[in-house]
């Protein structure tokens, strides 16, 4: 339902918490998450859908939150990087793998990589290197040269295949 000044209400579940917000039609999902819900772990790198830094999950699918309008996610379940670690602060195995393999340097692109890889491995736990490379090919990193990221994901994928329960959020 649209109000007289053009704003609309949206109701979303982010990392398990229900939020109600009022947005302009032009408000993007990344703006909703960052500015209105205070979830600044999702970063914005290009605002035109190329770099993948802003990747989050909507109903289990990885999407560019900079190209998604907030009104489009009304009623959806969203997972962001803040939803990966356990409530007590224990890192998600994917996060542990990135740290162990030095899969990050400045860390600005990292949330996007984590969410894209999380979406892939929860959907295809047996994804091989080619499939992993295909997904990583949608994410830009300017620091690492990707080799350590690939190692991180391969390590995480092997771990995931052994213990799925610890993995899914």
């Amino acid at each position: 339902m649209s109000s007289t000044n053009g704003t609309r209400p949206v109701r979303v579940t982010v990392n398990g918490t229900v939020h109600e917000a009022t947005v302009e039609p032009r408000t993007t999902l990344s703006e909703l998450l960052r500015s209105q819900l205070g979830l600044t772990g999702t970063h914005v790198g290009c605002e035109h859908g190329v770099c993948g830094v802003c990747t989050v999950l909507i109903d289990g699918k990885a999407v560019r939150s900079c190209l998604t309008l907030a009104v489009q996610v009304d009623g959806s379940e969203i997972l962001t990087v803040e939803g990966l670690a356990a409530a007590d602060g224990t890192l998600h195995p994917l996060q542990e793998a990135f740290s162990a393999e030095h899969g990050l340097q400045c860390g600005f692109c990292t949330p996007g990589f984590l969410m894209a890889v999380y979406a892939l491995l929860t959907e295809k736990p047996d994804a091989g290197e080619d499939e992993i490379r295909e997904v990583l090919g949608g994410q830009l990193c300017r620091c690492t040269g990707y080799q350590s990221i690939l190692r991180s994901v391969m390590r995480a994928a092997a771990q995931f295949r052994e213990s799925k329960l610890e993995w899914v959020r």
Binding site: R34, L39, T40, G41, T42, H43, V44, T80, V81, E82, L84, A85, G89, L91, Q95, F98, S99, A100, H102, L104, C106, G107, F108, T110, P111, L114
Partner: peptide
Amino acid sequence: VRVEDRSLLTGRTRFID
């Protein structure tokens, strides 16, 4: 393991925006 990683990986590091 880098001391920087934990905050970065959880989205807690405060960037300028």
